[in-house]
Design a protein around this nucleic acid. Structure first.
Length: 605
DNA sequence: GATGTGACGAC
RNA sequence: CUUGUCGUCACAUC
């Protein structure tokens, strides 16, 4: 029992360390890529034990990890092999990579057609995950900020927020829609490899592996000449690499047009640009679904033709003329990510009107009717139904007129609702705590299945979609801080520290660590910054001075490195960074130097 | 904060 | 018999 828990804890600490070690490597890739570095040896990183271990853990938690590919392998069989054997296996496979064939599965799309999936074997999915982990930080640094699909920390609501911004705030009425015919199935392989190259990935071995991966034979169909397998782990990233070029091409026409003069503010730059022949255009893209915003119809027409031509010539992608169109937002709705959005003219300022798209509304109605029917007389399924309703509310609440849409849906479902539930009128049994919090001001009729109160279908309130904070990023310390809800509240930190003792240190040090954090009120001894548990390091004042309370200080990650680094250039870099964050002053320098002497380093500055 | 179930949405 | 990425939510565990 105690043995087991001890082992568990050991594992956890091991995993944490392993994760942090490799996270620093990914951070480094991101930073270097931002500076325009060229990467020639990524394969050694891809096949490193830490990377493979991380890939294994990531892939294990996927729902599909238990569904087999063309060989019957599932995650369990991989798990049995143990890490060392796994590492060895991946390294050997990649030395002369020959992907297994992918399994063909057809899944129905909502419009009745079928979408082909290509499911690689579990081993190949693992290898793709290894590659993804290394390529992603490099690519993320180069991607355009207004591409939102398949990217870490970004979602549809961010894209919708951008749409609102362009239509409402920038006041652009014309929207160009271009539909790429079967985008995923038509990606040009050699073009894609060139695009990867131009992102700074010059590792010939890696490019070779990717090329082979794209040409993995499809069961029953042979070797594909184009397209990236839908179902492959790497595919979403590859699709973004392809269309990233489009993002920047459009963006460089106006938004990020490389001008010779450093304009003092954006207004100046815009005014100057308006005098040129350039057309004003902005892009918002979610995977292969993108909109280009223009000021007037003439521009829109020209942009549409230009982009279609560019896609054909440059990326060898066909567009479908029936689905591509120009919309005047003041006259018609434009559909985007399940919503339809338009502008309504008002004397002072136009307002944004958004609804669920007709397709989405129908889909939601059908799904709920089915779930409702399914749930009759079964409380568990009724709770399940509530989750469905919540999920849908959660997504569509960013449409300004959602409540109207859901009222219609409710109206359509009324008959079913009455048929399968007991209605307790407006009083009924109390709402659950969650429902009270969420639908507090709902005073309508209540419907019950058994004792479960069904979430009020039309009680949705519009929630403004927030834009993406561009500083948020997985590959910088600052970016991660913004993701984590600040874990600075002291009680939470204490609990965490108690539960996660430092593995290689004594009990005494672990106890004193907690006391020290308390004494410093969770702040760094050098920079005085509020620390999160991930930013926290224990510094021993005298390296051989023991684990006593007076010999340790709590410092931030950066400060810790600053004390211990022998590399003066790196130290300067860190100081620069702290300076820019307003965390550096005379005192901090003095203190750092005191510490540096004690650990046997030279004084800085 | 990290794991793990379950659900929802976009593509 | 349905993959993948991303995001959100609830619950549980630490």
């Amino acid at each position: 029992m105690t043995d087991q828990t001890a082992k568990k804890r050991e594992n956890k600490v091991l995993r944490r360390n392993e994760y942090y070690a490799i996270q620093d490597v990914f951070d480094g890739l991101y930073a270097k890529s931002k500076q325009g570095a060229i990467f020639t040896d990524l394969m050694s990183l891809i096949t490193s034990p830490q990377n493979i271990a991380l890939a294994y853990r990531r892939i294990k938690r996927n729902k599909g990890s238990r569904t087999p590919g063309t060989n019957m392998g599932t995650i369990e069989q991989i798990a049995e092999r143990g890490n060392d054997i796994l590492v060895d296996y991946v390294q050997r496979r990649l030395a002369n990579y020959k992907p297994h064939p992918v399994r063909r599965v057809m899944i129905p799309k909502d419009n009745g057609k079928e979408r082909p999936l290509g499911i690689p074997t579990i081993e190949d999915r693992l290898i793709q995950q290894c590659i993804l982990q290394v390529m992603e930080p490099i690519c993320e640094a180069k991607f355009h900020k207004h591409s939102y699909g398949f990217r870490p920390n970004r979602n549809t609501h961010h894209a919708i927020s951008r749409f609102r911004f362009l239509a409402f705030t920038v006041k652009l009425e014309y929207v160009v829609d271009i539909d790429i015919k079967g985008f995923f199935d038509n990606v040009d392989h050699s073009k894609l490899l060139k695009q990867i190259w131009s992102l700074g990935i010059h590792d010939k071995n890696l490019l070779c592996v990717i090329s082979k991966l794209l040409k993995a034979p499809i069961q029953g169909e042979g070797v594909p000449s184009k397209g990236t397998p839908q179902g492959g782990i790497l595919s979403p990233l590859l699709s973004n690499i392809v269309l990233n070029e489009l993002d920047w091409w459009i963006s460089n026409q106006w938004e990020t047009f490389p001008s010779k003069f450093p304009y003092r503010w954006d207004g100046d730059r815009c005014a100057a640009l308006k005098k040129t022949k350039l057309k004003e255009m902005y892009l918002v893209r979610y995977a292969d679904d993108f909109k280009i915003f223009c000021r007037n119809k003439k521009d829109a027409k020209r942009v549409k033709i230009a982009v279609e031509k560019w896609l054909m010539e440059r990326l060898h992608l066909e567009t479908s003329p029936e689905k591509s169109k120009i919309t005047n937002l003041c006259r018609h709705y434009s559909e985007f990510l399940g919503l339809k959005i338009k502008l309504e003219e008002r004397p002072k300022q136009n307002v944004i009107i958004s609804h669920m798209s007709d397709k989405a509304k129908k889909k939601v109605t059908d799904k709920l009717r089915k779930a409702l029917w399914d749930a009759r007389g079964n409380e568990d399924k009724a709770r399940n139904l509530n989750m469905k309703i919540r999920g849908m509310h959660n997504y569509y609440c960013v449409a300004t007129r959602v409540s109207k849409d859901f009222w219609e849906i409710y109206f359509h479902l009324l008959k079913t609702l009455k048929h399968i539930t007991r209605s307790h009128g407006k009083i009924g049994p109390p709402l659950s705590e969650f429902q009270k919090r969420r639908y507090g001001n709902y005073h309508g009729r209540r419907y019950l299945i058994g004792t479960v109160v069904i979430d009020p279908i039309y009680a949705v309130t519009f929630t403004i979609p927030y834009g993406f904070k561009q500083e948020i990023c997985n590959y910088t310390e600052e970016g991660r801080q913004l993701i984590h809800k600040r874990l600075t509240h002291l009680e939470v930190i204490f609990r965490y520290l108690a539960e996660h003792p430092l593995q290689h240190e004594s009990i005494e040090l672990n106890d004193n660590r907690i006391s020290r954090v308390s004494a410093q009120r969770g702040k760094c001894a050098i920079t005085k910054k509020q620390l999160t548990v991930y930013d926290m390091r224990v510094h021993k004042i005298y390296p051989n001075g023991g684990d006593g309370y007076r010999n340790i200080d709590i410092v931030s990650r950066d400060a810790y490195e600053l004390i211990h680094t022998k590399d003066i250039a790196r130290a300067k870099e860190l100081i620069e960074k702290l300076l820019s964050e307003g965390l550096w002053n005379e005192n901090a320098l003095k203190k750092t130097n005191n510490y540096r002497i004690l650990v046997g380093n030279t004084i800085i500055e």
